[in-house]
């Protein structure tokens, strides 16, 4: 609904959000199709491999999300690729963290498939590095939950990450910079009018993005290491993105 004082851009960005149930069903269907080859296995390696498959399918939905947005459509494919190469892992981390913010349970994790898994169960199924990453993500999600970040703010934050004017060799750098400025402005206006008792909310929302960047870098390093060890399922978008960025 159109609320007074709600910046139209915030509503437009929120409108780009995909139907969660549709994404969920698509991913479940794909994972069930793939399951044939790994049936019966249940160990640390198969848990990691399942996480990779989920992340891979989530990446497909992230690309679809970006393509659905008017601003993104205005860019040439070359620039679209550069933006996504730069932030795919951040968007994956954000997708996971925002799901936990809305799930709002400290002791369990909501997967993109809609399954809820108790945190200790996951931590027990993965190695120490991944366990630490999952816990850091959970801490960050709980801090964002304390900040009471809402869906409209989440929609804006995703675009601030996607339209990063610091990406090198962009053909239309000025446009990307302009979009980020517009989204920043709309988010600032939104937080000031919707949460007038919380004047610092805008700046408080941007702080965690640095941590998301750092978490996503650590996740990429871990994926690289696991890929070299032959543990990552091959021929997927996840690995293509990893190679494109690291090559």
């Amino acid at each position: 609904p159109q609320l007074p004082g709600l910046p139209p851009l915030v509503l437009e960005l929120l409108g780009c959000d995909q139907d969660e149930l549709m994404v969920q069903n698509k991913i479940i269907a794909h994972l069930q199709q793939e399951q044939g080859c790994s049936r019966g296995r249940h160990d640390k390696s198969s848990t990691f491999s399942q996480m990779c498959r989920m992340a891979d399918q989530t990446l497909f939905s992230i690309v679809e999300w970006a393509r659905s947005c008017a601003f993104f459509k205005e860019l040439k494919v070359g620039d679209q690729m550069k933006l996504l190469h730069n932030c795919w892992s951040e968007l994956l981390v954000l997708d996971h963290i925002f799901r936990q913010v809305l799930h709002a349970k400290e002791d369990s994790i909501l997967l993109v498939t809609g399954q809820e898994i108790k945190l200790p169960l996951i931590l027990d199924e993965v190695d120490a590095t991944l366990s630490s990453l999952v816990q850091k993500g959970q801490n960050l999600a709980m801090r964002l939950h304390t900040l009471q970040v809402d869906r409209r703010e989440i929609a804006c934050l995703k675009f601030i990450v996607l339209f990063n004017p610091n990406v090198k060799m962009l053909e239309n750098q000025a446009f990307v910079e302009g979009v980020q400025e517009q989204v920043n402005g709309a988010l600032l206006e939104y937080t000031l009018t919707t949460y007038p008792q919380f004047q610092e909310k805008f700046s408080q929302l941007l702080v965690p993005l640095t941590e998301v960047r750092s978490l996503s870098m650590q996740a990429e390093d871990y994926l690289c290491y696991m890929n070299l060890s032959g543990e990552v399922p091959c021929n997927n978008l996840l690995i293509e993105m990893l190679h494109a960025k690291r090559a």
């Binding site: 494919v77 978008l237 293509e240 993105m241 190679h243």
Partner: peptide, 18 residues
């Protein structure tokens, strides 16, 4: 030099109206 990302290029280039 960055390796070309063929799958991503395909996903961005494909025509959904067809």
């Amino acid at each position: 030099k960055k390796k070309d990302n063929a799958l991503l290029r395909y996903l961005l280039d494909k025509d959904d109206t067809v």
